[in-house]
Amino acid sequence: MKFGIVVFPGTWSDKDTHHAVNGVLGQDAEYIWHGDETLDGYDAIVLPGGFSYGDFLRCGAIARFSPVMEAVRAFADRGGPVVGICNGFQVLCESGLLPGVLMRNDHLEFRCIWTDLKVVNASTVFTSAATEGQTLRIPMSHGEGNFQADAATIERLEGNGQVVFRYADGAGNVTPEINPNGSINNIAGIVNERGNVMGMMPHPEKACETLIGGDDGNVIFNSMIDNIVASMA
């Protein structure tokens, strides 16, 4: 299968994502310049982390107008899997492909730490290789990851099982103390209603080998690979 990795000016997780899906997991992967208007031949799209357009105006607010985003929307409308990581999550929210907003961390500082993510929905194409309730150790690195939405949206997300990951402690306890950014209900990642577009703040591509601290991030890419390969069979 083939991953397409979108590169906006200011993206920096593109090479890390390429290394994880291609270098470690052996899948085809290509970079897609933000000016491209078609996404033919790709089985999954990644919007990686970084500071697209320097986070000017608001994180992701300018990248959403890049030509490639129309193609990403069309790809998602066809049911293609799209994952937005960190800045990619912010771009998806700004584009309206995912609900909610990512506000400044409640403590107002940038935070680079390892987080334990509790998998609260293991039936998505992004988490099927995990078991429900399991924690994945994946680092985060952001200043604006405080997920918020209006009460009705949160109720809908929770009711539909659209919340995929919550910040937890190593034992899987979801507590206010462990919340690293003020995110409502400790939300670290969500999917759209159809289940084919996911956004998450922590970086699975940064947890791809034990030598660099852990490989739990591969669970997410392996889930995508399993599901896409199965759907192609």
Binding site: S13, D16, H19, F110, C112, G213
Partner: peptide
């Protein structure tokens, strides 16, 4: 202090800040 800096990006960091020296792998 160093939790305010990204020390994972480029995915080479074998020993993170907080040790006597940082160690990076060379892909």
């Amino acid at each position: 202090i160093y939790r305010q800096y990204d020390y994972h990006v480029q995915t080479n960091t074998v020993i993170e800040p907080g040790g006597d020296a940082a160690v990076l792998r060379l892909k």
